[in-house]
């Protein structure tokens, strides 16, 4: 467990110590705040727009964190950092799980900062309290990092450094549109992820509450899917020749 936390902390420290991350968070919050100026153009929908923009930017931030992971693992493999780490009493599975865990923590911190900043801006702009649904939807964006990070790890192990981030983005992008496969067991939700299960941006705008049981179950699904993707990545990684 200590080894996993060491690998994970290395991952999150790598990203979170970069000042540019906080500058980007600030830029995201400026964009959220700018939604208030769209009152005329949106015919009075600026409040809804602000909620939605905050969620969109949070989702993009989560996606970028996952992409950074797909750059990091191949880079460590190429530069021999991974082989140094793996020469210690550390299993390949632990290495992958540590990377995934690090990515989740990094994403959670960044998304939480954007969410809290958005809540503050929303409160200051409209003088309204933050609804439960708004909180739930931001929480679900953070929870979506679990399967997304696992996918990032899988493609980082499976594919070459140049292709891995592109394929990850494409898969994550299309993973929101797999509903039409809902009638096919194993393929739907098992092999192909349905990230739309975490997507409730419209609910946040219309204040339609999400049952907490659903939030719990979707977290469980995220963990199960991450286990699937990670075990597949481990099978491939076990056979990989690391220099």
């Amino acid at each position: 467990m200590n080894e996993i936390i060491t690998i994970a902390s290395g991952t999150w420290k790598n990203v979170l110590r970069m000042k540019v991350v906080y500058f980007l968070i600030l830029c995201a919050l400026v964009l959220v705040a700018s939604a208030i100026n769209y009152d005329v153009l949106s015919m009075g929908l600026q409040k809804e727009l602000m909620i939605d923009v905050s969620l969109v930017l949070n989702s993009i931030a989560a996606m970028l964190v996952v992409i950074s992971l797909t750059f990091e693992i191949p880079k460590e493999l190429r530069e021999g950092v991974a082989s140094t780490l793996l020469s210690k009493p550390l299993g390949r599975f632990q290495y992958l799980i540590g990377k995934m865990f690090g990515c989740i923590v990094t994403g959670a911190v960044i998304c939480a900062l954007i969410a809290v900043g958005s809540f503050f801006i929303f409160n200051m702009s409209f003088g309204e309290r933050i609804g439960v649904t708004m909180f739930q939807t931001h929480l679900l964006v953070i929870l979506a990092l679990i399967p997304m990070s696992a996918l990032g790890v899988l493609f980082a192990v499976l594919l070459p450094e140049v292709i891995a981030p592109i394929i990850t983005v494409v898969v994550v992008w299309f993973a929101f549109s797999t509903k039409f496969l809902a009638g096919i067991p194993v393929l739907y939700g098992g092999i192909l992820p349905d990230l739309d299960l975490f997507n409730f941006r419209a609910n946040a705008v219309y204040q339609v509450q999400i049952p907490w049981m659903y939030v719990l179950l979707v977290t469980l699904w995220g963990i199960c899917y991450a286990a699937f993707a990670l075990s597949l990545a481990s099978i491939v990684f076990e056979r990989k020749d690391i220099k």
Binding site: V186, G189, L197, P211, Y214, L220, W221, F228, S231, S234
Partner: peptide, 23 residues
Amino acid sequence: YVIILVVACVASTILAMKLNTMQ
């Protein structure tokens, strides 16, 4: 890993279908 993969895949698909209906 293969066992985890199969179990996780089955559990994921069952959960996803239930969640889809709930959603």
